[in-house]
Nucleic acid binder design. Structure first.
Length: 258
DNA sequence: GACGATGTTGGCAC
DNA sequence: GGTGCCAACATCGT
């Protein structure tokens, strides 16, 4: 569920509440959530001071005085302050002044100590980086390349469809065959899109809520994603849905020609 | 009730 | 390097 705008919304709420706080206790209710590490968070976290809260792509990074705690929300992960535990609560952090709970219905999310996996990611989609040149190195369909977090980090299925719609590029276009100008335009339109979505506190399709349980508002502004059969806002042709890179893909067959 | 789809990623086979 | 399939899991719509 959560892509860059949703994760950024959460990070902006976490940062002022977590910065400078000390972890007093940690509980892991479902071991599967903690991955790629032999560290037992229940032993490792207590006493740690939170220096800052950062984001890279869809990953939330808690910078601690003793290392890093990396959180990925997967499809249905949620972080909530002072919330009651549910059957889907997978971990709980007790802080010196509050508690932070990690809920995850489908458990595609993860929490890990260390920062290693971030090294595999491409530049954050909003970072100062001309990442459109990276798109041109791949011969896969442009939509698959946008979804590849090693190429550029933060774009998921919703924003890939929305970005390609704005740029009027067919999702199946071979990335390497885009002109440099079109790739550059795609990057700029993607940045605009992500920033607008952040202004609306992200998109809520079903599960996504922020740390206070509020839904986002950007789903009302989607022009392609979830609009199958509805008229294109530019030309009124019905939006089509097909499958590409094993993901539902929405586009205007008239505006986005191959 | 069964079936298929859902915003994510990682691993593996080819 | 790219593709396709599967796995993790629960819910919801048809």
């Amino acid at each position: 569920m959560p892509e860059l705008p949703e994760v950024e919304t959460i990070v902006r709420e976490l940062r002022p509440r977590l910065k400078g706080r000390r972890v007093t206790a940690a509980d892991v209710l479902h071991a599967r959530i903690v991955r790629h590490s032999d560290i037992d968070l229940r032993d490792w976290l207590p006493g740690a001071r939170i220096i800052d809260v950062l984001r890279h792509g869809k990953f939330i990074l808690l910078q601690l005085d003793k290392g890093w705690l990396t959180v990925h929300l997967g499809m249905t992960g949620q972080l909530r302050f002072e919330a009651p535990e549910t059957v889907y609560t997978r971990a709980v952090l007790q802080l010196d002044d509050s508690s932070l709970l990690y809920d995850d219905i489908r458990m595609f999310g993860s929490i890990e100590a260390g920062r290693k996996r971030i090294d595999q990611l491409g530049p954050d989609a909003l970072a100062r980086d001309e990442w459109h040149v990276r798109l041109l190195r791949h011969k896969a369909p442009i939509k698959a390349v946008l979804l590849n977090q090693r190429v550029v980090a933060g774009i998921g299925n919703i924003y890939a469809d929305e970005a390609l719609f704005r740029a009027a590029i067919h999702p199946a276009t071979v990335a390497r065959r885009l002109s440099k100008a079109r790739a550059n335009k795609l990057e700029q339109l993607t940045r605009d899109l992500l920033n607008e979505a952040i202004d609306f506190r992200g998109s809520s399709i079903s599960d996504y809520v922020d740390t206070e349980g509020r839904r986002g508002g950007f789903q009302e502004r989607h022009q392609a994603y979830g609009r199958e059969g509805k008229p294109c806002v530019r030309c009124a042709s019905p939006i089509e849905k097909s499958f590409l890179a094993q993901r539902g893909t929405h586009f205007c067959p008239n505006c986005q020609r191959r």
